[in-house]
């Protein structure tokens, strides 16, 4: 790295500082103020509230009091660890599937679409014009037992394949792990495609020509030039898919069954039905920390191996 000396406000320490310059240098901080306030009110404060709640004991009738009872975490984890791991499993699968579907899509839009580029991009985000809930409900219809998708799966023995992989139990697609993962993949696909598109679109086509000129066949040129240069988009897209997918509770609720319960569903239930706030808060916190660790490890690996 080159050593750059950054002096806040842009004035060199040795140079005589005029008062006017001083005042000007405060402007960036003033501009930051709304953002910082927003973070404090809507992120830091709820976080503290949640943390304190996870350390309280009591019941909904007698009220909760802060007793620093760390044991709630252990109890919650031993009761719900399978849902937690399942969530990460589903989210990871949906992320990989999203990448497999999204990369070719983004690649095509960026390099091959020509004047259809903008139309295709609008189509990618078109699902956002209806609500998340409605879109997921639509999948119930799509995957229903008498629908064409199920018919196709049954006719082509894909159903048998899924059954042998334990992704479906009977002869239906709805209310199975398969349906949940499909729902997650579908719902978060735009979050995968858009960052991928942004980084692919920035690649200078002449670099690919240079690759070809230097004896790289098209596939090698992709592997050695396009793919490494699109990695920032891959990292961004996978994070934007994995993180919300891991905490999602709509897809597993509407498309799954009792054995596909994800951690988001558990938290939702503990907060709103069981009214066991400490457990719900402890699970929320655990989920957040786990995601943080996974993301940190992932970014690190991606960062050191390819991006630098």
């Amino acid at each position: 790295m080159t050593a750059t000396v950054h002096v806040p406000g842009g004035s060199m320490p040795a140079a005589p500082v005029e008062p006017r310059k001083r005042r000007a240098s405060k402007v960036p901080y003033l501009l930051l103020l709304p953002g910082v306030a927003w973070l404090l009110v809507f992120f830091v404060a709820p976080m503290i509230f949640l943390a304190s709640q996870s350390l309280q004991t009591g019941s909904i009738e007698q009220g909760y009091a802060l007793t620093w009872h760390i044991g709630t975490y252990g109890d919650a984890l031993s009761a719900f660890h399978s849902q937690l791991f399942r969530s990460f499993g589903y989210a990871a699968t949906a992320t990989v599937l999203g990448l497999l579907v999204g990369y070719p899509l983004a690649y095509t839009i960026a390099f091959k679409a020509g004047r259809w580029k903008n139309v295709l991009l609008v189509l990618v985000i078109a699902p956002f014009f209806t609500s998340f809930l409605i879109r997921t409900l639509a999948w119930q219809t799509i995957l229903s037992s008498d629908g064409p998708v199920v018919g196709f799966f049954r006719a082509t023995h894909l159903m048998d394949l899924l059954r042998s992989l334990h992704l479906v139990a009977g002869n239906d697609l709805l209310s199975t792990p398969f349906a949940v993962v499909m729902g997650l993949t579908y719902n978060f696909l735009p979050f995968m495609v858009l960052p991928l598109y942004a980084s692919l679109e920035r690649i200078d086509i002449r670099l690919l020509e240079a690759g070809g000129d230097l004896y790289a066949r098209p596939f090698t040129a992709f592997r050695k030039v396009t793919w490494p240069l699109s990695l920032p988009g891959v990292v961004a897209g996978t994070l934007l898919t994995f993180i919300p997918a891991a905490g999602d509770y709509i897809n597993s609720k509407l498309l799954g069954n009792t054995s596909t319960t994800m951690i988001g569903q558990v938290i939702d239930g503990q907060f709103l039905r069981v009214l066991d706030y400490p457990t719900a808060a402890a699970l929320s916190f655990t989920l957040m920390l786990a995601i943080l660790v996974i993301v940190a490890v992932y970014v690190r690996r991606a960062g050191t191996e390819e991006l630098v």
Binding site: R206, A210, D213, V225
Partner: peptide, 13 residues
């Protein structure tokens, strides 16, 4: 045949 491109086209990564 090899080319030295008008804008160099060096691989940035």
């Amino acid at each position: 045949v090899n080319t030295v491109f008008q804008n160099y086209a060096l691989f940035p990564h």
